[in-house]
């Protein structure tokens, strides 16, 4: 029962990676690679025709994911993955369109696109790697940075309220909302699998370590420090009210599946007008 895929010495995921670009640019201990693995693993299990799957990223550390994934992959501009993905999906509704990007990209500069794509219930699965900071530019304050957390632009500690992403997604109209940490690689894979199977706007937030910047500035100098923090402080609470899953600097991280509802998608509603055109 030896998996033939690996007999040639390649990693079993290499067939879905642009393996000639590995090792990737992410720092030691960065969680993005783990989330990419969970995504690819979920894709394989999904049974989707992989020639009909497109991945769209914005800019930033997580935005580089599209460049490593051997599917039709689009590395767009900062914050604009969702409107690009909207055009891609509506241009060819046969495509399964996945947006894979970071918290700063999707929620700050792309925040307006995020709430509107969710409002339309556009048929897009969104995977958001949340590392609480802007990694690519050197660790600045982001829309998810917890209060009191230090960043290079909040050197005395953050004084802004952060977004609670599941609450934002749910309030905006997402039909599937889950949160895990990158330590929960298997649960992340399952959640992404569910998000891929879901019709409409699905959202999976994955909390992931950024040891170089966020961790380093907040007393968790290694990726392992952050993983241990998740291990000790994350609490699975399926069905929790999204408004109750705020993240604080040293508090609990509530994880689980929070929203899984049915609602007509953008395409469902649009195609309904066919008879009156």
């Amino acid at each position: 029962m030896i998996d033939e895929q690996v007999l040639d010495g390649l990693h079993p995921m290499d067939k879905l990676l642009r393996a000639d670009r590995i090792p990737h640019i992410w720092c030691p201990g960065c969680g993005i690679g783990t989330v990419v693995y969970s995504f690819l693993s979920a894709l394989i299990k999904s049974g989707l025709d992989l020639d009909k799957v497109a991945v769209v990223s914005g800019i930033g550390c997580t935005g580089r994911a599209a460049g490593y994934i051997n599917l039709d992959s689009f590395h767009t501009t900062h914050g604009r993955a969702l409107p690009f993905a909207t055009g891609l999906k509506l241009g060819n509704p046969e495509l399964k369109v996945v947006v894979f990007s970071g918290d700063g990209d999707l929620i700050s500069i792309g925040g307006n696109h995020f709430i509107h794509a969710a409002r339309r219930n556009m048929d897009i699965a969104v995977i958001c790697v949340n590392n609480f900071t802007y990694g690519m530019t050197g660790g600045q304050l982001g829309p998810t940075t917890p209060i009191r957390a230090k960043t290079t632009t909040s050197p005395y500690g953050n004084t802004e309220h952060p977004f609670n992403l599941p609450y934002l997604a749910a309030a905006s109209g997402a039909v599937y909302v889950a949160r895990w940490t990158s330590l929960d690689a298997r649960r992340t894979e399952r959640a992404i699998g569910e998000a891929l199977a879901k019709k409409g706007f699905s959202f999976v937030e994955v909390i992931a370590p950024c040891p170089t910047l966020y961790g380093n500035m907040n007393k968790m100098k290694t990726g392992l420090d952050q993983m241990r923090f998740y291990e000790e402080n994350s609490v699975i609470r399926h069905g929790a009210e999204p408004k109750d899953v705020d993240i604080t600097l040293n508090g609990q991280i509530i994880v689980g599946k929070f929203v899984d509802i049915e609602k007509p998608t953008y395409l469902d509603l649009r195609d309904n007008i066919g008879s009156i055109v």
């Binding site: 079993p12 590995i22 992410w26 693995y37 990158s182």
Partner: peptide, 8 residues
């Protein structure tokens, strides 16, 4: 295999 961020 799942948790390795490096596909290593």
């Amino acid at each position: 295999q799942m948790i390795c961020p490096e596909f290593a």
